[in-house]
Design a protein around this nucleic acid. Structure first.
Lengths: 347, 347
DNA sequence: TTTAGCACTCTAAGGTCGAGAGTGCTAATC
DNA sequence: GATTAGCACTCTCGACCTTAGAGTGCTAAA
């Protein structure tokens, strides 16, 4: 059996209607609302076929049909038309970004809020990700008797700090000198790319401080590629969805969302700026059955810098979410580029 | 009518039993479980009195009694014995803190997790708070053509960064020089304490860079006393409490907890290291009726550094929570002090 | 091949009912 | 006078039943 055009139309109608109403869709409803020029009886037959093919399912006999995991997949891959963003909304987004900002962290946060408001689902922003940013500036700051703080500024505007132990007999001048050398050698290099030759150069110049340099290097490695800074918001919006009437589900979901490992996993698959849709069980994770995740990357200077994600029920408005993500990643990339590289100020 | 000892015992029993079971407590239950040497009929009479005095209330006729807002208050103020922490638990706590740590932020986070695990309610950690920390180190880092990053390390170990606009014709050497002067002048000073005389000194030395210094000062002010860094966790644990069966409540609570302003308010009243209990409506905030908040301050060098807080239903195990907070603020203060000032390493 | 008609199925909502828990009052008891 | 046993009364909660409504699959006609 193959999916001819009429079957496609019916599948499309079922998915759209179910997304909109959260009620199983019956043949009569489709005949009435979607004017396909065929009677409810015919639709019934087609729906039976679609169910046999695994694209639809029935919660119980004598209820309407709902899309199965596969049904959503087919819809997303072949039937859906991503929804553009309205002009009015675009204006509002621009306005939100215009307000003065203290640093990259705040832009991340604001983006998350906008994303969650536009979609009514939970929003996730990860930054920076995958492509490790390069070191812009390193400084060792004396902290307490035997500790120093390693300050690292990345070229994407994030700041990291680590405390390290100091060997005895190190004074401030030493630290300043070390900082200077590290800056000269590490500027523009990504922590993951620190090669042996470079390491030798550094050791060569700082032969006296071997142990300390080791400690600093270890600190640098710990902010390596798997480091991520997350914003998560709008979780409460999901509770408006009828699939979260079940308290137990809400609980497991909330507990998952408090684990950074889990959030990490959600964005891990993203390697470029494309939009990725993972439906239901495709999000390989026990405890979020029936949820879908849509992610998209944003870039700085053409390289992947971070990920925007939307987490919602499997019955998610994919067309809208994909549309919003496409627009927002693009817009965010431009905002960040202007902020980090652009000299010209725009209103 | 006054609250004699027998009434106190009965009130105590009602509160303890209700906290433990979440069921309205009847006179028979008290007679059976709490061996007060009086019959259920007598207890009934006393309970009627306590109700009249506003300390107990009845969900409906022919149900048992539950403590009123005032009842909890009386219990917390006069009847409760804070519960100490078991030896086994103490050992577990120590173990959790022993693991290697990257910075103050991580200690905060870990503390929040421990707190939420020990109490089974939502945990809130704010740092640093109220007493503004002093500047330890300032540095201007050139960032893009017309922007620089102001890096500020505080003596409590937190790091802040802000982007500022650069006037034309400033080069790296200028920035280094400015950083040097700022460091010399601002070290040990709290941003809120920057007085005019100090400002004049700085302007005196950096007369050429007036505009830039202004920008830096503004950035410093923006990390002033009302800045706070929050950790919030264990929210999902609250869903085990029967008072959160109501989805609508969970939703409003979650949406509140996503607002930093709200979290700020929760810890705002804390001015020293004492334990504060706010019950129900005493937490002046629409939308969290029926919730209580217990907070306590932790200190560094005897000065208030931050706040630990527990958010739970009004039917909260106050004795346990107060006990845990007392222990944990004390322990955390010691950990932080050792980390920031202490030279000696322990265990 | 499509459609009208119909018997059948299943859920969800509303209603009834009885068990159980708890109260307040009264009268007896200490 | 304080305490307690006894009892009628009240209220909730869960179990059970019933029914309306929506939807299906099948059959026979178009």
């Amino acid at each position: 059996m193959q999916i001819d055009e009429r079957k496609q139309k019916i599948l499309w109608a079922v998915v759209e209607d179910y997304i909109a109403t959260a009620e199983p869709v019956g043949s009569r409803t489709i005949a009435r609302k979607y004017k396909l020029g065929i009677s409810s009886a015919t639709i019934r037959n087609e729906m039976a076929d679609l169910e046999e093919m695994g694209l639809l399912e029935q919660p119980h006999t004598s209820a309407g049909r709902i899309p199965s995991h596969l049904g959503y997949r087919y819809y997303v891959d072949f039937l859906m038309h991503p929804l553009g963003i309205g002009e009015e909304e675009k204006r509002l987004i621009q306005q939100r970004y215009r307000a003065k900002v203290k640093g990259v962290g705040e832009i991340i946060k604001r983006t998350g809020q906008i994303l969650s408001e536009l979609t009514s689902y939970a929003a996730l922003v990860a930054a920076p990700h995958a492509t490790p940013p390069a070191v812009k500036y390193v400084q060792l700051v004396p902290f307490t008797g035997d500790q120093a703080m390693v300050l690292v500024v990345m070229d994407q505007g994030t700041v990291h700090h680590r405390l390290i132990e100091l060997p005895d007999q190190i004074n401030e001048a030493d630290l300043a000198k070390i900082s200077q050398v590290l800056n000269a050698k590490l500027g523009g290099v990504s922590p993951a790319d620190i090669k042996l030759t470079l390491l030798h150069e550094i050791y060569g110049e700082l032969i006296r401080y071997r142990r300390l340099v080791n400690a600093v290097m270890e600190a640098l490695r710990s902010i390596g590629p798997d480091f991520e800074q997350f914003y998560l918001g709008g979780v409460f919006k999901m509770l408006n969805q009828p699939e979260f009437r079940n308290l137990e589900r809400v609980k497991t979901l909330l507990s998952l969302l408090e684990q950074e490992d889990f959030l990490s996993d959600l964005v891990a698959g993203q390697t470029d700026s494309s939009v990725q849709v993972r439906i239901g069980r495709e999000v390989h994770h026990a405890g979020i059955d029936g949820c879908s995740v849509v992610t998209a990357g944003y870039t700085i200077g053409g390289r992947l810098a971070g990920v925007l994600g939307v987490l919602g029920p499997m019955r998610m408005d994919y067309a809208r979410v994909v549309g919003v993500l496409t627009y927002l990643t693009d817009y965010l990339s431009r905002v960040l580029e202007e902020m980090l590289y652009g000299g010209t100020k725009t209103g």
